[in-house]
């Protein structure tokens, strides 16, 4: 398959960005010593539907398809990566192990933009939604009070849902591109939201509150039978330690944590 032949590549990418099936596109960007491969050829590997395209070598295609499938589930997310293929047809992602004679394959993962689901439309919710939108997230806001869950207050949101937070969360399609930020008006609301959000495969769930308050919520859910693994994955108290005090600073701390986890980083000072 070649980009120029048809609009299949473009169609697949635009479909994925619009919320359709995500797709990994592998492109042979250098043939190295493997001259029989077709430079510039593409293999399209959708999340579950049929693969399309070939580099001109069945064994290589199989390796590439299998690597593409792993990228679909990668956490932290890798949206663009280069793999190296040596003359023995071994595929790896480590540039340090690569040589000039290796073929190079560019992998691009296309999917719907990351989604931020803000439960609670108060001061912190507003700051998180604003910063999330600025960072390129598609923002959903949920609150059961119509004074807070409305378009005038949240013009930057893609979606504002007013209603019982449990019901509204249940109505969403959740996957690992979904990031929950639970910042509602009280721990009962947060607990309801957390109970509903758990076990749906979200990429991130963070809940605001002091150590003591959040521990109470986690203990409740533990007694209800949620596994400790599942509960340990909840980021609570939420955010990175930057001494945040204002709602805007808290939003910065929360979004910094989300980005750090997504990119597989550790949050230390670059100068340290």
């Amino acid at each position: 398959m070649n980009f120029s032949k048809k609009t299949i590549v473009l169609d697949a990418i635009e479909n994925a960005i619009a919320g359709g099936e995500s797709i990994v596109i592998a492109t042979l960007i250098s043939s190295g010593q493997l001259n029989h491969l077709t430079l510039g050829a593409k293999i399209l590997v959708p999340k579950s539907s049929e693969v399309n395209g070939s580099f001109g070598d069945q064994k290589v295609d199989e390796l590439v398809i299998s690597a593409a499938r792993e990228l679909h589930d990668s956490q932290p997310r890798i949206n663009v990566g280069t793999a190296y293929l040596n003359a023995e047809k071994q595929l790896h992602f480590r540039i340090g192990k690569s040589t000039n004679s290796d073929a190079e394959i560019m992998f691009q993962l296309w999917e719907q933009p990351l989604r931020l689901i803000v439960v609670g439309g108060g001061h912190v919710g507003l700051a998180v939604a604003t910063l999330g939108d600025f960072l390129g997230f598609s923002v959903t806001v949920i609150d059961d009070r119509d004074d807070f869950a409305n378009r005038d207050r949240f013009p930057m949101a893609d979606e504002v849902r007013c209603g019982n937070v449990g019901v509204e969360i249940d109505a969403l399609q959740i996957d690992n591109t979904s990031h929950f930020v639970l910042v509602s008006r009280g721990h009962l609301q947060d607990e309801l939201a957390l109970r509903t959000a758990l076990g749906k495969g979200a990429g991130y769930i963070g809940m605001i509150g002091s150590k003591r308050r959040t521990k109470t919520v986690i203990d409740h859910l533990s007694e209800e039978g949620y596994s400790s693994d599942e509960l340990a994955g909840v980021s609570t108290p939420i955010g990175l330690s930057i001494g945040a005090e204002t709602p805007e600073e808290i939003a910065l701390s929360v979004m910094a944590e989300i980005i750090m986890l997504r990119r597989g980083a550790f949050g230390e000072r670059l100068s340290s």
Binding site: N79, V80, M106
Partner: peptide, 13 residues
């Protein structure tokens, strides 16, 4: 941009 090493003006993609 397929890949980068060190400090570059734009990132992969």
């Amino acid at each position: 941009v397929a890949n980068t090493r060190g400090s570059t003006p734009r990132k992969s993609g």
